[in-house]
């Protein structure tokens, strides 16, 4: 038995979302149809609204409804620190902690030739321009500890070297409050490698 065409189209659209497989797409579509019509309307209008109003901050490339995002507009933050991340989600993760008061720069990805992502596809030259105007005292390269994250950090560090700005990288190691016993092997290995003197 086949679903009606319009329902199939909805399932097909949902399936294209990241992390959604055929089964979940079916479940979501059927759920949406069961709920009151207003819910579908508000979902659709929220989607269109978000698309129409949000774009990337012209300074740091985080998301914003204004030309410049809320964080960049905040004058009370610490201009001596700049944190470079791959993805807008990373900004949110660091902001949630509430203890970092510097500014951000979102690269919009990591260098990965296998996925056709080269430095020119990322906001790296924009970063360099930004530094010429307002050089911070320290740049924190907060890319993930993967092969691509490390390579991206190394590449940026090489470009930044002539500026003389202090460059740091997020540490990797033990989760705080974690039991040694329960830590996965890869994390434990990296914690051993990055150990430091007391």
């Amino acid at each position: 038995m086949l679903y009606p065409r319009s329902l199939n189209q909805l399932i097909g659209q949902l399936e294209r979302l990241p992390g959604v497989g055929p089964k979940l797409a079916q479940r979501l579509a059927l759920y949406l149809l069961r709920r009151p019509e207003e819910e579908s309307e508000s979902l659709a209008s929220a989607l269109l609204m978000a698309r129409a109003r949000t774009h990337f901050c012209e300074n740091c490339f985080f998301l914003s409804e204004e030309p410049v995002c809320e964080i960049c507009r905040d004058n009370s933050r610490d201009t001596s620190l700049l944190c470079v991340v791959a993805d807008p989600r990373d900004v949110l993760a660091i902001e949630r902690i509430g203890s970092f008061r510097g500014y951000y720069h979102v690269l919009q990805g990591l260098i990965s030739p296998a996925d056709n992502i080269y430095p020119e596809q990322l906001k790296i030259s924009a970063l360099m321009q930004r530094l010429e105007q307002n050089p911070p005292q320290e740049i924190i390269l907060a890319t993930s500890p993967t092969v691509e994250g490390d390579t991206t950090a190394l590449y940026i560090a090489r470009l930044l070297k002539p500026t003389g700005i202090k460059i740091t990288r997020l540490a990797h190691g033990m989760p705080v409050g974690g039991d040694l016993d329960y830590t996965d092997a890869a994390t434990l290995l990296s914690a051993l490698e990055w150990r430091r003197e007391l």
Binding site: P113, Y118, E120, D150, T151
Partner: peptide, 13 residues
């Protein structure tokens, strides 16, 4: 179709 600008980093890794 692509540059060699990241080759030093890939070689290092």
């Amino acid at each position: 179709r692509g540059g060699l600008e990241t080759l030093p980093e890939w070689s290092h890794q």
